[in-house]
């Protein structure tokens, strides 16, 4: 069991990943990346950072498995219930009335927020009127989410409490089935969702503009230069008048792209695009 790695180990792994998979992790937040790499080292049964580098360079670990393993978790359904109430009460119906009411959720990993969004749309009776384009870093994420995910009891307990605070229309338990003490969300919640792989948000072309982009607690994993590029990409992908939603302790203030946005809800971190 490896419980710590140093800065040199981290750099060596970053090099191996770049050389082998063409994925650049050099501008990721050091502490978070280090912890994810330690998790990956142990998940893949390596006994040291050097051993892990060897496995990567020998392609004993696929890029897909690597991306699946190091992806940052989002930890609860309906995390920050007041945000989901706000979306339900003030934004979802507006988006449904648009000619092409689409919401983009890049970098979906555990699927918690995707299912949360799908539930509020379903409870508003707007399923089919709002399309969700969601991207996952790996095919493994997509396969798992398409099957309804696989959530442990602890997460479900927290999520049920969140759902109660959100004040949903039913019981959270009505949205999942239990199998071997794991919760599997009802896959039909995703009927209006298109899930595609996107291992790097910056590498994809902007093919359409969105009414809303939900990108909560994802900017945490980037250092400021990469964070700035990602925010530019998000803002460029929004329609004028469209909304960007980030995590409640995230900020856009270190990016020039924030000048194109106005704050519409400072507490829930909802921004509206002013200009193109």
């Amino acid at each position: 069991m490896v419980d710590n790695i140093g800065i040199v180990d981290t750099r060596n792994i970053i090099s191996a990943v770049t050389d082998t998979y063409g994925i650049d992790l050099s501008d990721y937040t050091f502490t978070i990346l280090k912890r994810r790499l330690i998790h990956a080292i142990n998940t893949f049964g390596s006994h040291s950072a050097d051993d892990f580098c060897d496995k990567i360079r020998k392609k004993a670990i696929t890029a897909d498995d690597f991306l699946y393993t190091i992806s940052l978790e989002v930890t609860e359904f309906f995390r920050d219930p007041s945000l989901w109430r706000e979306l339900r009460d003030k934004y979802i119906s507006e988006i449904s009335r648009a000619t092409d009411g689409r919401i983009w959720m890049p970098c979906v990993t555990s699927g918690d927020e995707l299912f949360s969004l799908a539930i509020i749309i379903a409870e508003a009776g707007l399923q089919g009127k709002i399309k969700i384009d969601a991207n996952c870093p790996s095919n493994k994420h997509i396969e798992l989410i398409n099957k309804g995910g696989n959530y442990d009891q602890k997460k479900i307990e927290v999520s049920e409490a969140n759902y109660t605070r959100y004040v949903g229309k039913t019981q959270f338990a009505s949205y999942y089935t239990l199998s071997d003490n794991k919760a599997v969300m009802k896959p039909q919640l995703l009927d209006s969702v298109t899930l595609e792989k996107q291992d790097d948000i910056l590498n994809s072309a902007i093919t359409r503009k969105y009414k809303m982009i939900i990108y909560r607690n994802k900017l945490l994993q980037f250092n400021i230069p990469l964070y700035d590029k990602v925010i530019h990409k998000l803002v460029d992908s929004l329609e004028v008048g469209g909304y960007l939603v980030i995590g409640n302790m995230e900020t856009l203030e270190y990016s020039e792209a924030s000048k194109k946005l106005q704050v519409v809800n400072a507490t829930e971190k909802i921004y509206k695009k002013r200009v193109d």
Binding site: T31, I32, E73, T75, N217, L220
Partner: peptide, 8 residues
Amino acid sequence: FSLSTEDV
């Protein structure tokens, strides 16, 4: 500062 939503 950096913040994280990693598991408890």
